[in-house]
């Protein structure tokens, strides 16, 4: 695989398959997907709700939904080390220090019974090796750095005393407390208004520049992708439909799903009222997957072979950042040739 970045990937997942078993159903949440991210780079992962974005990114770190049996296969490397064969203690150390995670559900990461500040300080003390006093200072400065007004006062507040947006900023502070090298931000700005979102994205970018960390941004917000991402991976029903530079994927999408997805993004500044376009139909039932392309049932271009053969992810275009698409039909229809 060719890499556009000078430095190799710092977190890299290949051929990942994740099956989740609950007492009533089993779900193939991730079905042979992969991604990589290099230091200083932002990879955005977008895709339908339930397409596996969260599970694919956090699963290899052992952060999987509770109360389900999991079968996970494939390869995952952090800083060149195989993490799937790591002992639970090593993995948990890696998780705490190497990776910083901003969880989709803020309440799941913050303990509701403890004040915000001490939770941050504990994280900083444990993983960044600070003394108790330094850790408290660090916690206050993290709160301030995350744009929380009145940080000294907020230090002593319980999570329920903060607004949704402030909690989200506290989460960012928490994720940064251990000074991670890979920041995984799962929907970091959806609970925030546009001005605070702009601040948070600027904050993530600034921290990324200062510390050279890699960022994985999981989001539904194409605007946030447009602000922050260098590369984008589009996930559909547990598989990567398309990946490439943010400019290629957002302005010249090729896969029919990516095109449908982007068509349903209203452009705030466009003057022609586009209405909100939806992709008709619903994603496949991941408990009963058919062979072939996962998008076949909803695709306008569908051909008989789409239902029998899984389309491979192939390189299109010759740009420096590989642009890959899993749809031979659209390529044939539009005369797009592969550069593999």
């Amino acid at each position: 695989m060719s890499r556009h970045s000078q430095n190799g990937p710092i977190y890299e997942v290949e051929g990942l398959v994740i099956d989740l078993y609950t007492p009533t159903v089993s779900v193939r949440a991730v079905d042979g997907a992969g991604f990589y991210v290099a230091p200083g780079e932002t990879l955005a992962i977008v895709g339908e709700s339930g397409s596996g974005k969260t599970v694919m990114t956090l699963g290899p770190l052992g952060l999987l939904p509770e109360g389900v049996a999991v079968d996970l296969r494939g390869t995952a490397r952090a800083d060149g080390k195989d993490i799937l064969s790591m002992s639970p203690t090593d993995l948990s150390r890696l998780r705490g220090g190497f990776f910083g995670v901003i969880f989709q559900d803020p309440m799941s990461a913050l303990n509701p019974m403890l004040k915000i500040g001490p939770q941050l300080a504990e994280q900083a003390r444990r993983f960044a090796g600070l003394s108790a006093e330094e850790a408290k200072k660090e916690a206050v400065s993290l709160l301030a750095r995350s744009g929380i007004p009145d940080p000294e006062d907020r230090y002593d507040r319980y999570p329920h005393e903060l607004s949704g947006g402030m909690l989200q900023r506290a989460m960012i502070a928490l994720a940064l407390a251990a000074r991670p090298r890979v920041l995984i931000a799962d929907e970091p700005t959806t609970a925030l208004d546009a001005t605070v979102q702009a601040q948070i994205l600027a904050l993530i970018r600034q921290i990324q520049k200062e510390d050279g960390i890699a960022v994985i941004l999981i989001t539904h917000d194409i605007g946030a992708v447009s602000v922050l991402a260098d590369r984008v991976a589009v996930l559909y029903a547990g598989q990567v439909a398309e990946e490439g530079s943010a400019i290629d994927v957002l302005t010249a999408p090729v896969h029919p799903y990516t095109r449908g997805l982007l068509a349903s993004v209203p452009d705030f500044r466009s003057n022609n009222a586009t209405g909100t376009k939806e992709i008709p139909g619903i994603p496949p039932n991941q408990a009963q997957l058919e062979p072939g392309c996962r998008f076949a049932d909803r695709c306008e271009l569908v051909q008989p072979q789409c239902r029998t053969h899984r389309p491979p992810l192939v390189k299109v275009g010759a740009g420096p950042v590989p642009h890959r698409v899993a749809c031979p039909v659209v390529m044939a229809a539009e005369g797009i040739v592969t550069h593999d």
């Binding site: 001005t195 702009a198 605007g223 992708v225 447009s226 602000v227 957002l250 982007l262």
Partner: peptide, 29 residues
């Protein structure tokens, strides 16, 4: 005006060059 100006464009090329009003300071408590 500041709120609306902060809405990002879905096109990264526009987003990179679009003039924006950045609000200084934090909202008061």
């Amino acid at each position: 005006q500041a709120l609306l100006s902060a809405v990002p464009s879905p096109d990264p090329r526009i987003e990179a060059t679009r003039p924006r009003i950045l609000l200084a300071g934090d909202p008061p408590s």
